[in-house]
């Protein structure tokens, strides 16, 4: 049983089909990169996986006891959040939202996990800082810690390095790889950066309004479409 499986998924917007014939599966410990040009439906597919948008057809099956609400999500950076008056700790704590159930407040266990995840990300010393004074890289670490608070199985990342400088980008990629290897958390990442994707990921899903390729990185390198796309990117 795979962690997540898409069967004949299609998605649309106001009657127009944006994505169709999506068939792939992700197993525990995989690192899947979703690549493709702008407007190829990468972000749309992520929204479908997270149930932020409904599917036009097909189904997404979760396995291995993964609950829908237990997917950790790192959204694209919003400009409106940059100056939001909140402390780092408040933001990371909100990652435990899916554990609240009917309780109005967080428990000691929630706070222990928040501390643990913040230490993984190396941001525990920033807990009292205001989010708005942090650098772009630090802000992304905060958002990653929040996503990790929501899950122990699957992280979904939507272009996590957009707008970061090369050194911070590298740090961010290393961090994501470490989460994948050391914590055995499965990763699904949408990325513009094909080169980095090939270095990091175990599997590639190439979209262009429909599924153009799905397989391991080696298979992708040897495929027609992979050769063409990788050459363009280089």
């Amino acid at each position: 049983m795979s962690l997540l499986q898409c069967k004949d998924v299609s998605m649309g917007y106001e009657g127009k089909t944006m994505l169709q014939n999506i068939n792939f599966q992700v197993n525990e410990g995989d690192y899947l990169c979703i690549v493709g040009e702008n407007g190829s439906g990468k972000s749309t597919l992520l929204k479908g996986l997270l149930r932020l948008k409904s599917l036009a057809g097909g189904e997404i099956i979760l396995g291995d006891g993964l609950l829908q609400k237990e997917i950790g999500y790192l959204p694209q950076r919003l400009p409106s959040q940059k100056n939001f008056p909140a402390s780092v700790y408040e933001i990371v704590l909100s990652g435990r939202l899916n554990q609240l159930g009917w309780r109005p407040f967080y428990t000691k266990e929630d706070k222990r996990i928040v501390r643990e995840r913040m230490e993984w990300m190396g941001i525990w010393h920033l807990k009292k800082e205001s989010f708005s004074v942090l650098s772009g890289g630090q802000q992304q670490r905060v958002m990653l810690a929040r996503a990790l608070c929501a899950t122990s199985k699957l992280l979904v990342l939507d272009e996590p390095v957009t707008g970061l400088d090369p050194i911070v980008t590298k740090e961010m990629y290393d961090l994501i790889l470490r989460i994948n290897r050391e914590q055995n958390i499965t990763i699904i990442m949408v990325s513009h950066d094909t080169k980095a994707s090939m270095e990091q990921a175990t599997h590639i899903l190439h979209l262009g309004k429909e599924q153009l390729f799905f397989g391991t990185c080696e298979q992708y390198e040897n495929s027609e479409i992979g050769k063409k796309f990788l050459k363009e990117g280089a």
Binding site: L50, L52, K69, I71, P75, A86, S94, L97, L100, A150
Partner: peptide, 21 residues
């Protein structure tokens, strides 16, 4: 008071809150 943490989550990042159910 009772929904303070949920209100915070929705105010800060509605999509994330929605993704957590």
């Amino acid at each position: 008071i009772l929904f303070y943490h949920r209100i915070f989550a929705i105010t800060f990042d509605e999509n994330f809150a929605k993704a957590t159910g």
